[in-house]
Design a protein around this nucleic acid. Sequence first.
DNA 1: GCCAACGTTGGC
DNA 2: GCCAACGTTGGC
Length: 152
Amino acid sequence: MSRYWLFKTEPGSYSIDDLKKDGRTHWDGIRNYQARNLLRDEVSKGDKILVYHSSTDPVGVVGIAEVVREAYPDPSAQDPSSKYYDQKASDTDPRWFMVDIAFRERFDLVPLSELKETKGLEDMVVTKRSRLSVQPVTREEFEIVTKLGKRD
DNA sequence: GCCAACGTTGGC
DNA sequence: GCCAACGTTGGC
């Protein structure tokens, strides 16, 4: 049974349009333990992802992606030239993981302000703990947001 | 650019 | 193991 997630990205560094162009990508650079644990232990092939643009104006959900490869070590942690370099990462203890995701859909941005006002989304993690970069979404939440994104 | 909320570090 | 200090995130 597939599950649902919300992945945040700053469109200035990697946007849904970059993902659309690339088709698929390595979701690297996750450096938060709670997000890492979800990526490593919970995120599974076939799961659906709401792609969220943060640190932009307006912020919100812009499309859908799908997990196409489950967690494996994030090589940027061992690359001294990467901004995600972590001295404590090693081959025996990679510390940080990433998954591969594929583009599925781009839709009109559903702003955070609207998510906060929409019935059924009161408990959505993004409205409460916006700093968590990989977060679980319920099936109901996923469907409500998708419907909002595909209106008109 | 501000600043509140949150996560991490490190001295004790 | 506590917690103050510090650094980062991210909405506004």
